[in-house]
Protein backbone atom coordinates (compact mmCIF):
# COMPACT_ATOMS: atom_id res chain seq x y z
CA UNK A 1 0.00 0.00 0.00
CA UNK A 2 2.70 2.41 1.05
CA UNK A 3 4.54 1.53 -2.11
CA UNK A 4 1.65 2.79 -4.23
CA UNK A 5 1.47 6.05 -2.30
CA UNK A 6 5.23 6.53 -2.76
CA UNK A 7 5.09 5.77 -6.47
CA UNK A 8 2.17 8.16 -6.89
CA UNK A 9 3.96 10.95 -5.00
CA UNK A 10 7.16 10.46 -7.01
CA UNK A 11 5.39 10.48 -10.38
CA UNK A 12 3.16 13.42 -9.41
CA UNK A 13 6.26 15.32 -8.29
CA UNK A 14 8.03 14.63 -11.57
CA UNK A 15 4.94 15.59 -13.57
CA UNK A 16 4.44 18.91 -11.76
CA UNK A 17 8.14 19.75 -12.12
CA UNK A 18 7.90 19.04 -15.83
CA UNK A 19 4.73 21.13 -16.25
CA UNK A 20 6.38 24.04 -14.43
CA UNK A 21 9.29 24.03 -16.86
CA UNK A 22 6.92 23.50 -19.78
CA UNK A 23 5.15 26.69 -18.76
CA UNK A 24 8.52 28.43 -18.56
CA UNK A 25 9.39 27.36 -22.07
CA UNK A 26 6.02 27.70 -23.75
CA UNK A 27 4.15 30.76 -22.53
CA UNK A 28 4.29 34.04 -24.37
CA UNK A 29 5.41 36.82 -22.05
CA UNK A 30 7.60 37.00 -19.00
CA UNK A 31 4.79 37.63 -16.53
CA UNK A 32 2.94 34.50 -17.67
CA UNK A 33 6.15 32.46 -17.63
CA UNK A 34 6.60 33.47 -14.00
CA UNK A 35 3.58 31.36 -13.02
CA UNK A 36 4.89 27.94 -14.03
CA UNK A 37 8.14 27.68 -12.10
CA UNK A 38 6.99 29.46 -8.95
CA UNK A 39 4.06 27.18 -8.28
CA UNK A 40 3.99 23.99 -10.29
CA UNK A 41 7.71 23.37 -9.81
CA UNK A 42 7.53 24.18 -6.10
CA UNK A 43 4.61 21.81 -5.63
CA UNK A 44 6.39 19.13 -7.68
CA UNK A 45 9.56 19.30 -5.62
CA UNK A 46 7.39 19.37 -2.49
CA UNK A 47 5.78 16.08 -3.58
CA UNK A 48 9.19 14.50 -4.25
CA UNK A 49 10.52 15.66 -0.86
CA UNK A 50 7.48 14.29 0.98
CA UNK A 51 7.94 11.00 -0.87
CA UNK A 52 11.55 10.98 0.33
CA UNK A 53 10.47 11.69 3.92
CA UNK A 54 7.97 8.81 3.80
CA UNK A 55 10.51 6.49 2.18
CA UNK A 56 13.24 7.08 4.76
CA UNK A 57 10.77 6.92 7.66
CA UNK A 58 10.05 3.27 6.91
CA UNK A 59 12.85 2.06 9.19
CA UNK A 60 12.86 2.33 12.96
CA UNK A 61 13.61 6.05 13.06
CA UNK A 62 11.47 8.77 11.42
CA UNK A 63 13.29 10.99 8.96
CA UNK A 64 11.50 14.29 8.65
CA UNK A 65 14.24 16.72 7.74
CA UNK A 66 13.03 16.81 4.11
CA UNK A 67 10.13 18.85 5.44
CA UNK A 68 12.62 21.65 6.11
CA UNK A 69 13.48 21.97 2.40
CA UNK A 70 9.80 21.78 1.47
CA UNK A 71 8.92 24.55 3.90
CA UNK A 72 11.89 26.63 2.82
CA UNK A 73 10.94 26.33 -0.86
CA UNK A 74 7.31 27.20 -0.14
CA UNK A 75 8.40 30.30 1.75
CA UNK A 76 11.05 31.49 -0.72
CA UNK A 77 9.34 30.77 -4.06
CA UNK A 78 6.78 33.60 -3.72
CA UNK A 79 9.49 35.97 -2.54
CA UNK A 80 11.70 35.38 -5.57
CA UNK A 81 8.64 35.53 -7.86
CA UNK A 82 7.68 38.88 -6.36
CA UNK A 83 11.21 40.23 -6.81
CA UNK A 84 11.39 38.97 -10.39
CA UNK A 85 8.03 40.57 -11.22
CA UNK A 86 9.20 43.81 -9.63
CA UNK A 87 12.42 43.72 -11.67
CA UNK A 88 10.46 43.01 -14.87
CA UNK A 89 8.10 45.92 -14.19
CA UNK A 90 11.09 48.11 -13.47
CA UNK A 91 12.70 47.15 -16.79
CA UNK A 92 9.32 47.65 -18.53
CA UNK A 93 9.31 44.25 -20.23
CA UNK A 94 6.66 43.73 -22.90
CA UNK A 95 3.52 42.08 -21.66
CA UNK A 96 0.48 40.50 -23.27
CA UNK A 97 -1.70 41.90 -20.53
CA UNK A 98 -2.35 45.63 -20.51
CA UNK A 99 0.21 47.20 -18.21
CA UNK A 100 -1.13 49.06 -15.20
CA UNK A 101 -1.44 52.74 -16.08
CA UNK A 102 -0.89 54.21 -12.64
CA UNK A 103 2.70 55.34 -12.72
CA UNK A 104 3.09 55.65 -8.97
CA UNK A 105 3.43 51.88 -8.81
CA UNK A 106 6.87 52.25 -10.27
Amino acid sequence: MLEYVLAFLIIAGGAFTFIGSLGLARLRDFYSRLHGPTKATTLGVGCVLIASAVYFSQGDQPSLHEILITLFLFITAPVSAHLLAKAALHLKLTSVARRPESENLE
Binding site: L24, R33, P37, V45, A51, Y55
Partner: peptide
Amino acid sequence: DAPDRILALDTLYVNTIALLVLFGI
Protein backbone atom coordinates in the same frame (compact mmCIF):
# COMPACT_ATOMS: atom_id res chain seq x y z
CA ASP B 1 15.53 39.34 -21.28
CA ALA B 2 17.57 39.23 -18.12
CA PRO B 3 14.60 38.39 -15.83
CA ASP B 4 13.80 35.40 -18.07
CA ARG B 5 17.29 34.07 -17.59
CA ILE B 6 17.16 34.59 -13.83
CA LEU B 7 13.83 32.77 -13.73
CA ALA B 8 15.34 29.92 -15.74
CA LEU B 9 18.28 29.69 -13.29
CA ASP B 10 15.83 29.71 -10.39
CA THR B 11 13.89 26.85 -11.98
CA LEU B 12 17.11 24.97 -12.70
CA TYR B 13 18.21 24.92 -9.09
CA VAL B 14 14.80 23.76 -7.90
CA ASN B 15 14.93 21.01 -10.54
CA THR B 16 18.39 20.06 -9.28
CA ILE B 17 16.99 19.61 -5.78
CA ALA B 18 14.34 17.27 -7.20
CA LEU B 19 17.00 15.27 -9.06
CA LEU B 20 19.20 14.98 -5.96
CA VAL B 21 16.32 13.84 -3.77
CA LEU B 22 15.18 11.29 -6.35
CA PHE B 23 18.74 10.01 -6.63
CA GLY B 24 18.88 9.75 -2.84
CA ILE B 25 15.76 7.55 -2.88
